[in-house]
Structure formats: structure tokens, C-alpha cells
Design a protein around this nucleic acid. Structure first.
Lengths: 193, 193
DNA sequence: AGCTTAGGTGAACGTTCGTTCACCGTAAAG
DNA sequence: CTTTACGGTGAACGAACGTTCACCTAAGCT
């Protein structure tokens, strides 16, 4: 463990980033961390980079790493007591980052109907959809039928593609002529009031 | 509505930010957006600021606004064709903000087991848990039994509280003595590989 | 046609950036 | 009691920053 004040400085930076979604220039960091010289900041930044909290993004700007975000992820620890120490699992900074890999061509669609209830997709849920025309059998897709969105498994048999609901009360859909795919379902989320 | 290419440029910036958690300097933005001059970027940034996608953080750095993160929300529009124009209309929301109302006492728990499959909560999903000791019957809670997390409906009958799975293969759990509630499930999300 | 609007270009310019250097004070190690 | 290591200081400096300007081109309008 560290015996210096870097974790305090880091905390200040985390607060700033949480508020402004951006890291300030060195002069402002000095301000935030009660330092009086940019040279001190330069050394601080060196340490935080070395320790894996900061990195340099393309273009040269300072950027946070995944380690910069203290994110409470509690594992379903099978044994023992759920300790806060076991929280830090890596790789996702926020739910947004985890669910949306390509923001520019990703949209949300609200689920209507219970045709996918067997796949854990309920009415009122939102699905995260990456817009694209091509999809693989087995994927859950948003297709356009009769001008409406419909969410189904994409399947194919010897006669061609078909849309399969995850609900025994619905039947297979075989597109009349051409199947119009709006996008691929890459995620799903739901909120309990 | 816009008739220019700014939403494409914005998309590039969103992708960059999603990857690097930081906005690049103008020269790099020009690079990203296939522009050849910083002057063009300057005008682009002016427009994106005017339209509420960007702002200037303390220190003078460019920073995203909440609108920058808003994901286009495509309704299950019953009529008409889903036009890209309809997407950009203001129904944008940030998944984080939507799902997590109280960040300071909210944690994520990975779901293990299929005891809540009937409620659309599958193994591998994440549930958003607001830590608190009190819960109401009917809510989905994370309880601690034998040192392990367990996700169940909280119910109560004339004999007291009990934990009810959403899976016919599991049976009701009546806590031996005291029921230890870790938190209330306020949301759920899942990612498809 | 002629005019206007709007996005983009390329160069110039003053400002600000982050680095570097010698130096200071404290605290642990020899 | 030195010595060393380390975080921070203050000034100086070249490089990079974002703005500004005149100009270009294409599209829309009358």
C-alpha cells in the first residue's frame, strides 16, 4: 500500500472526472490538488500512470484507465462473507460501457409483447440494438415486418431464414419474400420501479 | 432537424470517447472526422456546443454533456417506417442514469443459478442492487443465507417473511431465525456475446 | 443568371500546454 | 549525524493548442 497522499489526489481527480467527464490540464490539476507548480503535477501524473490509474489517449490527452473507476461489483461469492474487498472485478467502467460497444450505431428499443419471454426478455424491457443488416442464425434480431419492429431469434432451415419466438404460444414466422433486419440485439436491461 | 453531417462527426466523437474516456485535441478531431483543418473543427465544435452535445469544463478542456451520452431511443413505432430521423428526437437517456438512481449505495451482483428464471433473471445476468436492510413484500431482494447471496422474491404470510424463487423446481425458503437482507434489486441487465 | 448561406481549407498568431531543471524540506535509512 | 529518497517549488522553454482570417466550393433561393 502507498504511504503518500496520492490516493487523496486521485480522489480529487475522480471527483472532478465524475462531475465533468473530463480530466483538466496540469494547471487545473495543481489547483484541485492544492499544489503550486505544474512540475509537481507532472510527477504526480507520472506516478498515477505508473500505478495504472491514468494513461495517454491518442492525441496526447490524459485519460483515465479502467482502474481509475472504483466500481462496486460484488461477486456472488460462494463462500465466506461478501467482503467489499472482493468487489473489484475488471473490465467494465460503467453499465453504459459494458452494454454499448459501438455508441454511434446503437439504439434502444422498448420491448412490446411477450413473444421472447422464454429468453428472459419481457414487455417493458429495453433491448440494446446494434443496427446492421446482416445477422447470424441463433442471434436475437430486431426485424421489420409490416412496418413494425419485432424481436425474435433468427433461424434458418433448408427453406431459408425464419423468425422464431421464445414463447410456445407463438408460432414460427417465415418471411414472405425478403427478410428486413433492423439490427442485432446485443443486450437487454430492465428497471424495477 | 439537421441536414448536415454533424451527427456523423458526433458519432465519431462518441466512439472515440467510449474507447478512450477522453476527448482529443482539435488536430486529432480533424483526423477522426476526416477534416483537414483545425478551423473546420472549431466550427464543428461551435455547433456541437450550441446544440448541447459539448461543453467546456473548468480548466478549458472540451467535455461531453449528458446529451452527448444519450442514446437514441427507437420506439416500437407501430406505424410507418422507422426513419433515422425519428431516432434523434429527444427521447434519449443514459442507461446508467436510468438504472442507478443512488450511485453511492448501489452495487452490481452477478446472477448465479436459475432460481429467478421465471422473472426473466437468468444466470450470468447482472442485477443492480441498492443496499438496504428493509424491503417490502413483493420486491426482489438479495438476501444472505449461509454466507451466500441469494436472489428471491420477498414474501410474507401469517408466519412471517419468506423467500420465494421464480422457478417451480425450487421451493420456498423460510429463514430459520433472522432474515438478512443485503439489498433490493432495482434493475437487471444482460449482454449477449 | 445572381445572391446568400453554410461547411470546410490553409496559414498565421498569441496563448497555454507539459516538460525540464536546479533547488527546498522532510523523513527514513545507513 | 550524515546520506539518500521523495514529494513539491518556481522559472524557463519549445511544442502544441485553439482562434482567427480570407478564401473556396456547393447547395438553396429568388
Amino acid at each position: 500500500m502507498v504511504d503518500n497522499n496520492d490516493h487523496i489526489h486521485l480522489g480529487r481527480l475522480q471527483d472532478f472526472y465524475a462531475t465533468h467527464k473530463s480530466l483538466p490540464p496540469y494547471a487545473k490539476i495543481a489547483d484541485i490538488c492544492d499544489m503550486r507548480s505544474k512540475a509537481g503535477v507532472s510527477k504526480l501524473v507520472f506516478r498515477l500512470k505508473r500505478d495504472g490509474f491514468l494513461q495517454v489517449a491518442p492525441g496526447g490527452r490524459l485519460a483515465p484507465t479502467s482502474r481509475f473507476f472504483g466500481r462496486p461489483l460484488v461477486g456472488s461469492a460462494p463462500a465466506g462473507f461478501p467482503s467489499p474487498a472482493a468487489e473489484l472485478l475488471d473490465d467494465a467502467l460503467s453499465i453504459d460501457d459494458y452494454l454499448v460497444e459501438h455508441p454511434s450505431d446503437t439504439v434502444l428499443v422498448e420491448v412490446q409483447g411477450d413473444s421472447m419471454i422464454g429468453a428472459g426478455i419481457q414487455p417493458g424491457d429495453y433491448v440494446i440494438v446494434r443496427k446492421c443488416q446482416r445477422a447470424e442464425p441463433g442471434q436475437i434480431v430486431v426485424a421489420i415486418m409490416d412496418g413494425e419492429f419485432t424481436i425474435k431469434y433468427l433461424d434458418r432451415d433448408e427453406k431459408g431464414y425464419l423468425l422464431r419466438p421464445a414463447n410456445a404460444h407463438y408460432s414460427l414466422l417465415r418471411p414472405e419474400q425478403e427478410l428486413s433486419i433492423f439490427g442485432i440485439v446485443t443486450g437487454q436491461f430492465r428497471k424495477y420501479s
